[in-house]
Write a protein that binds this DNA or RNA. Structure first.
Length: 495
RNA sequence: GGCAUCGUGGCCGAGUGGCUAGGCACAGCUCUGCAAAAGCUUGUACAGCGGUUCGAAUCCGCUCGAUGCCUCCA
C-alpha cells in the first residue's frame, strides 16, 4: 500500500488562507510547478531557501508514494527591470553591460545555479523548461486572451486588461488585494504610456531596433512578458489545472496573481488547487539586498570568503539550519544561529553513525513505532520540519543512551529506527552523511587512526600521559577529535 | 500611505484556549588520569495595555516595534 493512503497530508493553501487536506487531481500523481530563477546573476541565498523548501516538499511527496512531476522553470527572457515602458530586459541589460550575448549570460548563470543547488543536495526537477524555449506556446496564449477580450494591442505590444478582467473575475484573490484600492493608491501618475491602466501588465513587448532578444509574432518583433512563461509552461507540462504551485512569498503579488488572471482569461479555469509560498530569508535581521551590502552568496558561506561570518559553513549545515525553521516563516540568518545549527547537525550525524553499531537486547525501552508516527504527523502538518527535527533529537538521545548501555532496544526496533532515521534525515531533509572522501582514503585513515588510538591507549595504561595527550592534542590540531566511550575510543573528523 | 505577516526564556525556533517543543549557550552531577565526547538534572518565556473566558502565549481591541509586498526580486 502506498504510504499516502495512511498518512493524510495537510498543507497551507495561500489561496484559501487555511490548512487543507491534500488531495491530488489524479490519485497517486502530483503535478507541482515552482517558479525558478531569472538567470541574470549569481543565485543568492534567499533564492536557495525557496528551492530548498520545495525540494523538501518534493522529497516528502515522493516518499509518500506519489508519482510527482515537478516542473521548475528557468527565466531566460522577458523579465524586465521595471514596469515602465522603457523597462529593459534583465538579461539583455547584463549582456549589454558585459558586452556578451544574452545567451552567454543565461548559460553562465544557469550553470552557477545548478552548481549551487547541487551543493545543497537539491534534487533536479522532473522538467526544467526555459522561457525562450516556449515562445510559440506563449504567443498562442496571448491570442486566446485577445480573442476573449481581456487584452489589447498597442504599438506592437500586448497588455492584459486588468480592469476589464476584474469586472467578471476576481483579480487579487490570491494576495488579498482589491483593484479599487490599487487604483486609488497608484503612486506614479505620470504614466503616459501605452497601457490603459497602470495595473495592466505586458503579455508581449515590442522590441526596439537595438533590442537583441526578439522573436517574430503577429504583433511584430518582440519578446514575451514575464508572467506569461509560467502560465505557458505549467499548462503545457501539467495541464490547465494542476495540484501545487509554489514560489517565494514575494512572487505572490503581482506574479502569481497575474498567472491566475492569464489562465482564467485564456481558458476560463483557475489553474492551481494549492498555492504554496515559501517565506523570506533575512540576514542579521534585515532584508538581503545587494545595494546595502547586506547580502551573501552561497559560495561565500561555503568558502568563508565574506565579511559577515567568521568561519565557513558547509552546505549541509546551511540546509539543516533552514530545515529547522518552518518554510512559511521568515528566517533570519546570523552567525550565532548557524553555529548552533552546526553543532546540532554534527550531533545528529554522529548519532546516525552510532545507530549502525548499536547493541540489541531482548526488550526495548523506546517505542519506535509511536515515535515514527509522530515524525510523520509533523510532516503531515504542512511539512513541519522543525517539529520533525525535534523528534529526531529525541531519537538521538535514545541512541546515545543505548550506546551507553543505559537503555535497551530489540533488533526489530533497531531496524525500524534505522530505516526511519535514514528516511527522515537523508531522504526527506536531504542531509548528507559524512562519507565525503573516497572509500580507499577513508579505509587508510581508519587504519592509521586505529594504530594511533591503540598507541595512545597503551600509553594511558602505562600512565604515560605525556605521550597520550600528545597524540590527542596533535590530532585535535589536525581537526580530528578522539572520543573515549564505554565501547572504546572513536574519532571524528571536522571539516 | 495601503495590504500582509510577525513580535516566545541568553540566542535560534515550534506551538494556537487548560497538559514538556527542540537545538545552541550557561550551571550542577555521572563518566574520565585530566579533558573532550556522551548521559542525567535545572530554566515557568510568550512586546505593552485593556477585554472575552472558569482558564489565554494562543480569541478580540488598541498601542508600540519588526519584516515583507505595493516598482524588479525566491
Amino acid at each position: 500500500m502506498q504510504l499516502y493512503k495512511s498518512q493524510p497530508l495537510k498543507i497551507h493553501n495561500s489561496l484559501s488562507g487555511s490548512k487543507e487536506l491534500f488531495e491530488p487531481l489524479n490519485e497517486g500523481h502530483v503535478g507541482m510547478y515552482v517558479c525558478g530563477p531569472t538567470v541574470y546573476s549569481n543565485v543568492h541565498l534567499g533564492n536557495c531557501r525557496t528551492f530548498l523548501s520545495f525540494d523538501m516538499i518534493f522529497r516528502y511527496l515522493r516518499h509518500l508514494g506519489y508519482k510527482v512531476r515537478y516542473v521548475r522553470n528557468i527565466t531566460d527572457a522577458g523579465h524586465l527591470e521595471d514596469d515602465a515602458d522603457e523597462g529593459e530586459d534583465k538579461i539583455a541589460k547584463k549582456a549589454r553591460l558585459e558586452q556578451i550575448e544574452p545567451m552567454e549570460v543565461v548559460q553562465r548563470y544557469t550553470v552557477d545555479f545548478h552548481n549551487i543547488l547541487q551543493k545543497f543536495n537539491i534534487l533536479p526537477p522532473s522538467i526544467e523548461p526555459t522561457a525562450t524555449g516556449h515562445i510559440i506556446e506563449q504567443i498562442e496564449i496571448i491570442k486566446e486572451i485577445l480573442e476573449n477580450g481581456f487584452a489589447y494591442e498597442a504599438n506592437g505590444s500586448v497588455y492584459f486588461d486588468v480592469v476589464k478582467f476584474n469586472k467578471s473575475h476576481a483579480y487579487g484573490k490570491l494576495s488579498g488585494r482589491k483593484l479599487e484600492d490599487m487604483i486609488a493608491n497608484t503612486r506614479d501618475l505620470t504614466a503616459q504610456d501605452e497601457k490603459r491602466n497602470p495595473q495592466d501588465f505586458a503579455l508581449w513587448k515590442r522590441a526596439e531596433p537595438q533590442h537583441i532578444m526578439r522573436w517574430p509574432s503577429p504583433w511584430g518583433d518582440g519578446f514575451p512578458g514575464w508572467h506569461l512563461e509560467c502560465t505557458a509552461m505549467s499548462t503545457k507540462y501539467l495541464g490547465k489545472t494542476f495540484d501545487i504551485h509554489g514560489g517565494g512569498m514575494d512572487l505572490k503579488f503581482p506574479h502569481h496573481e497575474c498567472e491566475i488572471a492569464q489562465a482564467e482569461a485564456s481558458y476560463g479555469k483557475s489553474p492551481v488547487n494549492y498555492w504554496l509560498h515559501a517565506n523570506m530569508l533575512t540576514l542579521n535581521g534585515k532584508k538581503m539586498a545587494k545595494s546595502t551590502g547586506n547580502n551573501i552568496l552561497p559560495n561565500e558561506i561555503f568558502t568563508g570568503e565574506n565579511n559577515i561570518f567568521s568561519k565557513p559553513f558547509s552546505p549541509a549545515v546551511v540546509r539543516f539550519f533552514m530545515m529547522q525553521a518552518h518554510y512559511s516563516s521568515i528566517l533570519d540568518l546570523s552567525e550565532s544561529a548557524l553555529l548552533a545549527s552546526e553543532k546540532g547537525y554534527h550531533r545528529l550525524m554522529e548519532a546516525m553513525e552510532a545507530l549502525e553499531w548499536l547493541n540489541t537486547s531482548s526488550s526495548s525501552d523506546f517505542d519506535v513505532a509511536a515515535w515514527r508516527q509522530k515524525c510523520y504527523d509533523a510532516m503531515n502538518d504542512d511539512f513541519n520540519t522543525p517539529i520533525l527535527i525535534a523528534h529526531l533529537f529525541e531519537a538521538v538521545k535514545q541512541i546515545n543512551l543505548i550506546k551507553e548501555r543505559k537503555s535497551d532496544i530489540t533488533q526489530e526496533d533497531k531496524e525500524l529506527l534505522q530505516a526511519s532515521m535514514q528516511a527522515f534525515v537523508y531522504d526527506l531533509l536531504g542531509l548528507e552523511g559524512k562519507t565525503a572522501g573516497g572509500a580507499a582514503d577513508s579505509n587508510k585513515l581508519d587504519g592509521v587512526m586505529e594504530l594511533l588510538i591503540s598507541l595512545r591507549n597503551e600509553a594511558r595504561a602505562n600512565r604515560d600521559f605525556a605521550t597520550s595527550d600528545r597524540i590527542r592534542d596533535q590530532l585535535a590540531a589536525l581537526g580530528i577529535q578522539l572520543k573515549d566511550g564505554k565501547e572504546g575510543t572513536s574519532f571524528s573528523v571536522s571539516g
